[in-house]
Nucleic acid binder design. Structure first.
Lengths: 133, 133
DNA sequence: TCAAATAGGACTATATTAGTCTACATTTAA
DNA sequence: TTAAATGTAGACTAATATAGTCCTATTTGA
């Protein structure tokens, strides 16, 4: 199975909500209530989006989030890797597979897998948040 | 994260091994030993490949498996869905999401997600086992 | 100084994936 | 005709990844 995690779905919904809002600042609570997303989980996601410079926030009362980049400038790929970490299409393509994989030398499918990985990456880099907003 | 399951990796390795073998029949044990794949797990996988008409088998002593289709006629997509079931890029695109998804009516990202799903499918349908063999 | 907000770590629960165990059925060769 | 080699199949357990919760700061405006 191959999938977009629920967290990324939530992120997309949040970004859509923020983009379409006419407020300057949108709170996590608003997003959570309007989209039926667990508040605590959403908070974590928004924080990650902030640390990726996708969102900016004001803390404190009357605080909230706002877009730091335009949707068309945010590849879906970046969103995914920000939230779920590096995207490896197969276990053996992880950074630390070199120490984990028991069959490094004998592996017969690594190089075509790598090629496929590149193609999937391309696809997710071509897509931007504006495709969802 | 987005990935090819280990079972599919094993299937690819098995198909490669069978394709490159000069025996008429290859046993699960041979494949398991040569590729470091847990025997029981591999057996299950081979059985699924059989039920998908990718492999054929002879039972009994001197039995084993052999290719029923040519690698270039087996899309990676089919292998994946044979082994791991239908490929839905997001939870909401599953067959039974209609009853499960709490936000059917309000969902704001379903249609672009569906488009993305099609594109990923295309990619995996274009790839065939011959790319790995 | 209080209430409303973001920030962030630790924890628990759930679902998915990987792997194991046991029993049985089929075929061949001795 | 029987033993060994093989595929078939279901139930179970273990490991891992994902989703979700809880609790406690910290910041800031009224």
């Amino acid at each position: 199975m191959i999938r977009i995690s629920k967290k990324v779905e939530y992120a997309l919904m949040a970004l859509k909500f923020i983009s379409n809002s006419d407020h300057k600042l949108v709170t996590a609570r608003e997003i959570s209530d309007n989209n039926n997303i667990p508040y605590d989980l959403l908070s974590k996601i928004l924080q990650k989006l902030k640390s990726e410079n996708i969102l900016e926030s004001n803390q404190g009362a009357n605080g909230g989030y706002f877009m730091k980049k335009r949707p068309e400038d945010i590849p879906l790929y970046n969103l995914m890797s920000a939230i779920d970490g590096e995207i490896a299409i197969a276990e053996c393509l992880n950074e630390n597979a070199e120490k984990d994989c028991t069959m490094l030398d004998t592996c017969v499918i690594k190089s075509p897998m790598l090629k496929l990985q590149k193609e999937v990456e391309e696809l997710f880099k071509r897509k931007t948040i504006s495709d969802f907003v």
